[in-house]
Write a protein that binds this DNA or RNA. Structure first.
Length: 390
DNA sequence: TCTGGGGTCCTAGGACCC
DNA sequence: TCTGGGGTCCTAGGACCC
C-alpha cells in the first residue's frame, strides 16, 4: 500500500503588529516603523521592513533602535487592533481547512491533507497569500511540509511573502545546514551548550552519536529533538489546543525603580484590577493567583497561591496578591511587578443565567451537577476566606 | 545596546491520599 | 511496625516562543 504523506501548512504573518498599523494607515508603509518601547527602558516588539533595513529588529532596546535609525516612528502596542486582524486572518484560513491550530496571535497550522486532490498545494498557498495581501494588506509566509515541525521551519525560510516547500528529501540540502540556534525550540540558553559539545548545525545534531553527553544538555528531550531534526514529528494539528487561556496576567516594567512599599501596593492594585477585568470579560473564574517581582538587579521571584474555591472577585484576589507580596518582601528596588491568574474555568453562574432566558432548552443532568458543585464550592470558599481574615 | 509583555510547557520536590 | 508504590495537586523556577 502506498504511504500517504500529510500536507501541513504553517502560515505566519510577517511583522504582524507593524503590518496591522500599516493596514490601518497607508502613510506608515514607506517610513521606518517600530511597535512598542514606551520608555527608554522598553524594547520593540516588532519593526516594519523599512526599519529592518537599518538593522532594527524585534526585541531591540529603544535607545539602540533610535541610534541605528533616528527617523524611526515608534507606536505604542495596540492589542485590540491586532486581535481584530488576527480574527480576520483565522477567518480566512477557515475557508481552506477545518483542521486549524492557532499557534499564536499571528500564526496557524492547517492540515491540508484532504484538500489537495484537485489543486496543487502550492497553488492554494499562493491564493491564500494573495488574498491576505490584496484584501487585508497582510503579508504572510507559508511553509508546506509533511508535519508541523517542518512546516514551521519552512515558513521561516523565506520572509516576507515566501512560500517554501520542505519535503523529507530536501532536508540535507535545506534544513541540516542551518545553525542549531535556528531550530524551533532551541533557545539562547541551550544553543551555547550545544556548541560546546560540537553541535553547530541541525545536521550535527542528526549525526551526533554520544547521547549521554547530549542528555546533559537537552535533558529528557534528546529523542524528541533528534526525531524532529531528522524530519519526524507525529503531532496532529489540533483545533482544540489554545481555545481557552490557561493563564491571564499582566506585568509592567516601571520607568524608574520602586522603593516605597505604598507605591508597590498602588501598582499591585491597578495590575490586579486589569487582570480581574479580563477574567470577568472572559466569563471565567480562577483558583490560582500568582505575583511576579523583578528587582533592579534582574533577579526575579514568582509566588503563587491556590485557593480551594474559584472566584472572579477583585477583593478576594487582591487580598491574596497583597499577602503574597507581604510574605516575600525584600530590600531590593523593584523594576517590574506582575499579577496573573491560572486554574481557569468558565463561570458556571453566568452559564446558568443564559439558560434561564433560553427556556426552550432543557437543562441536562450534567449541567445540574456542575451547578450544584459550583455552588457548594463558592459557599465553602467564602467561609474559609472569612476565617483567614480574622 | 542594560535587557517588554503576553503567554505555554516542563521539571522537581513535597504533601497527601489510598 | 521503620516502611511501598501509584496518583494527584501545589509551588517555584526555568526555558522558550511571538
Amino acid at each position: 500500500m502506498e504511504k500517504k504523506y500529510r500536507i501541513i501548512f504553517h502560515i505566519d504573518l510577517n511583522a504582524f503588529f507593524a503590518s496591522c498599523e500599516m493596514a490601518e494607515d497607508e502613510s506608515l508603509i514607506k517610513i521606518p516603523l517600530g511597535i512598542g518601547g514606551s520608555s527608554n527602558r522598553g524594547v520593540l516588539t516588532t519593526a516594519n521592513y523599512v526599519a529592518r533595513k537599518y538593522g532594527v529588529s524585534s526585541g531591540m532596546n529603544v535607545v539602540e533602535a533610535k541610534r541605528l535609525c533616528p527617523s524611526i516612528l515608534l507606536l505604542p502596542v495596540n492589542f485590540a487592533l491586532y486581535q481584530k486582524y488576527s480574527q480576520i486572518f483565522f477567518n480566512l484560513l477557515s475557508e481552506y481547512s477545518d483542521i486549524i491550530e492557532k499557534g499564536s496571535i499571528d500564526e496557524g497550522y492547517l492540515d491540508m491533507t484532504d484538500m489537495s486532490e484537485e489543486v496543487h498545494p502550492v497553488e492554494i498557498a499562493e491564493e491564500i497569500q494573495k488574498r491576505l495581501l490584496n484584501e487585508f494588506k497582510l503579508p504572510v509566509s507559508i511553509g508546506i511540509a509533511p508535519n508541523m515541525f517542518l512546516a514551521k521551519m519552512a515558513s521561516d525560510m523565506k520572509k516576507p511573502l515566501g512560500i517554501t516547500v520542505l519535503r523529507k528529501r530536501d532536508l540535507a540540502e535545506k534544513l541540516w545546514p542551518l545553525p542549531i540556534e535556528d531550530m524551533y525550540g532551541i533557545g539562547k540558553k541551550t544553543y551555547p551548550n550545544l556548541k560546546l559539545i560540537g553541535i553547530n548545525t541541525i545536521g550535527d545534531l542528526v549525526n551526533y552519536e554520544d547521547h549521554k553527553k547530549l542528555k546533559l544538555v537537552l535533558g529528557n528531550r534528546v529523542k524528541e529533538f533528534i526525531e524532529k531534526a531528522k524530519g519526524t514529528d507525529n503531532r496532529t494539528v489540533d483545533p482544540h489546543r489554545y481555545v481557552e487561556y490557561k493563564s491571564i496576567g499582566t506585568s509592567q516594567t516601571y520607568a524608574t525603580d520602586i522603593y516605597e512599599y505604598q507605591t508597590v501596593l498602588t501598582k499591585l492594585v491597578s495590575l490586579t484590577k486589569k487582570v480581574v477585568n479580563r477574567v470577568i470579560k472572559d466569563e471565567s473564574v480562577v483558583k490560582t493567583i500568582n505575583i511576579q517581582v523583578r528587582y533592579s538587579d534582574f533577579t526575579q521571584i514568582n509566588r503563587s497561591k491556590t485557593l480551594d474555591f474559584y472566584t472572579d472577585n477583585f477583593f478576594e484576589i487582591y487580598q491574596i496578591v497583597e499577602q503574597l507580596y507581604d510574605d516575600n518582601q525584600s530590600d531590593l528596588p523593584i523594576r517590574l511587578l506582575g499579577v496573573s491568574v491560572s486554574n481557569i474555568k468558565p463561570n458556571v453562574n453566568n452559564f446558568r443565567q443564559i439558560n434561564i432566558f433560553d427556556v426552550s432548552k432543557e437543562v441536562t443532568k450534567e449541567e445540574k451537577v456542575i451547578k450544584m458543585l459550583n455552588n457548594i464550592n463558592v459557599t465553602y470558599g467564602n467561609k474559609i476566606i472569612k476565617k483567614g481574615i480574622k
